[in-house]
């Protein structure tokens, strides 16, 4: 009961902090002071208090887009185990639901972008969909590997198997899917080698293009869903690379939070030391992720 409460509290309150930590890391690398770590909370609070301007060409889809996105991602949040603790909801085959809740969120984000009738936003939507077509197979190969290792079809037991001790011969595939999944994580959360969250240059951006027409509370919701998505994929990734637990809940929760913040620092470092890829080269990166996860699967079943 308490675990469920903490799980939901973490989902609700923790994500904006991650954006703050990433921005702070990038600022330190660039030699700036940077915004305070808690800035994202203030931004979201400010946006939620603002009024909203809706273009007269838009329909209900434009308003529904961010809301459906938020609820889909929050729903996915119930399916994922956090740290050493079980997921709130777990049933056979829920990893499909997890993957397609993300797809649903993406569908509504892109629909809302198309709904504005702006060709610029349509371009962003096209890019988003193109790249997600390439990141999805990588994700599913990762699922396949995990399902085979844990011989279960529920996300909860699939993800917690690295912590429960491994059979010989499963480390190598896990290393491969961890690498591939990290690329997927960067692509899905619009981080630097794929997309630059800080720019507003029309030639380069993907996610920012689609949300240009949203303002006020709707934009606050979008910002929060992006942070939540980062949190969920990060929690997924941590199961692969740092499946540590002590068995004592008083230590395990802070341990998870610390691992998560460390992951954000790593993402910040990656963003600082790499350049954004040219749009043409992004598929190379994603195809490499597919190849990594695919060879992990071959390695496992051979």
């Amino acid at each position: 009961m308490i675990e469920t409460a903490i799980h939901i509290l973490l989902l609700a309150l923790f994500p904006p902090l991650l954006l703050g930590v990433i921005n702070k890391t990038k600022a330190v690398f660039a030699g700036r002071v940077g915004p305070p770590v808690l800035q994202s909370y203030l931004d979201i609070a400010k946006l939620l208090r603002k009024g909203m301007v809706l273009s007269s060409t838009t329909t209900w889809i434009f308003v529904a887009g961010p809301l459906v996105t938020l609820s889909a991602i929050a729903g996915a949040g119930l399916l994922i185990p956090i740290g050493a603790f079980p997921a709130i909801l777990a049933f056979k085959g829920d990893f499909l639901l997890f993957a397609y809740l993300f797809a649903l969120a993406r569908f509504f984000t892109t629909s809302a972008a198309l709904d504005t009738g702006s060709s610029f936003e349509g371009m962003g939507a096209a890019r988003e969909v193109t790249f997600s077509v390439l990141s999805e197979p990588a994700l599913f190969f990762a699922f396949l590997v995990l399902a085979r290792i844990s011989s279960s079809l529920s996300l909860d037991s699939m993800l917690r198997v690295p912590a429960l001790g491994l059979a010989v011969g499963t480390t190598a595939p896990l290393v491969l899917i961890a690498l591939g999944f990290f690329v997927v994580l960067l692509a899905e959360t619009c981080r630097i080698p794929v997309d630059d969250p800080a720019t507003h240059l029309e030639l380069t951006m993907i996610h920012e293009v689609m949300v240009l027409d949203h303002c006020g509370p709707l934009f606050g919701v979008i910002l929060y869903s992006a942070a939540l998505k980062l949190f969920l994929l990060g929690a997924f990734f941590l199961h692969l690379v740092a499946p540590y637990s002590t068995g004592n809940p008083l230590i395990d929760w802070p341990l998870f939070a610390a691992e998560m913040l460390a992951l954000c620092v790593v993402i910040g470092v990656v963003e600082s030391i790499t350049a954004r890829l040219r749009m043409r080269r992004v598929p190379y990166l994603l195809v490499s992720a597919i190849l990594l996860c695919g060879s992990a699967f071959i390695l496992l079943v051979r």
Binding site: L166, V168, G169, T171, A172, P173, V175, Y284, L292
Partner: peptide, 22 residues
Amino acid sequence: MMDLLNALLVIILVMNLFSLGT
């Protein structure tokens, strides 16, 4: 020991792909 060895070898395989792709 065996798992560590295999993990290292897998990283070497990944490096192969990177050296092809850069």
